Simulated scan of single mutants.
Amino acid sequence: MAKLLWGWTIPLGLLLARMGYDEVRAADSAQPELTATLLLTCGLLSALLGLTGMTGVLAWIPRPGRTHRLCTAPNRDAAAQSR
């Protein structure tokens, strides 16, 4: 499931980047520089994020909906040293 999510992030980012390239070519909008810059930057960064997620580098990020318990047990080494 996680690989599928990361896998769809790559084409989505490339689609955003392609929309940015089309915006540069059209140049009919009111602010083509800002729009194209945002689309290109967000598209390429999200594709890079998807690629790094596919390789497993971002495995430390917890999945949405999962809760992680924090260790609340006292440190046994500190208790042993105080005796």
Rank of each mutant, 00 (worst) to 15 (best):
G56A: 07
A27G: 02
Q31P: 05
D28R: 10
V57T: 14
A27V: 00
G13Y: 00
T72W: 07
G56W: 04
G20D: 09
A80H: 03
L39C: 08
D28V: 07
D77K: 11
V57H: 09
T9W: 05
M54I: 11
A2S: 11
H68F: 07
L45W: 09
S82A: 15
G13T: 05
I61G: 03
R69Q: 04
D77N: 12
W8M: 15
A73K: 07
G65Y: 02
A27K: 01
L16K: 06
P32R: 00
R63E: 11
Q81L: 12
L49K: 05
L39M: 14
A26R: 05
L49T: 14
L15A: 15
Q81R: 14
A79D: 11
L51S: 13
L49C: 13
R76F: 10
A79V: 14
N75Q: 10
S46M: 15
Q31W: 08
T9E: 03
T52A: 13
G13K: 03
R25E: 14
A47R: 06
A47L: 11
N75G: 05
C71Y: 09
A73D: 05
G56E: 08
A17D: 06
W60D: 00
R25K: 14
A17C: 12
W8H: 03
A27P: 01
R66L: 10
P32H: 00
S46L: 15
A30L: 04
R63L: 14
M19T: 11
R76H: 12
L45A: 15
I10D: 01
A17M: 12
T35D: 02
T35R: 12
T55G: 03
W8S: 14
R25H: 10
T37K: 00
P62C: 06
N75L: 12
P74Y: 04
D77R: 13
A78Q: 05
L38R: 10
E33M: 11
T9S: 10
A26D: 12
R63Y: 09
H68Y: 10
T52I: 14
P74H: 07
L16A: 15
T55M: 11
L4C: 00
L70F: 13
G13V: 04
G53K: 04
M1K: 02
T52Q: 10
P62F: 03
C42E: 09
A73G: 01
Q31K: 12
L39S: 04
T35V: 13
G50M: 01
I10H: 02
S29E: 13
A79R: 13
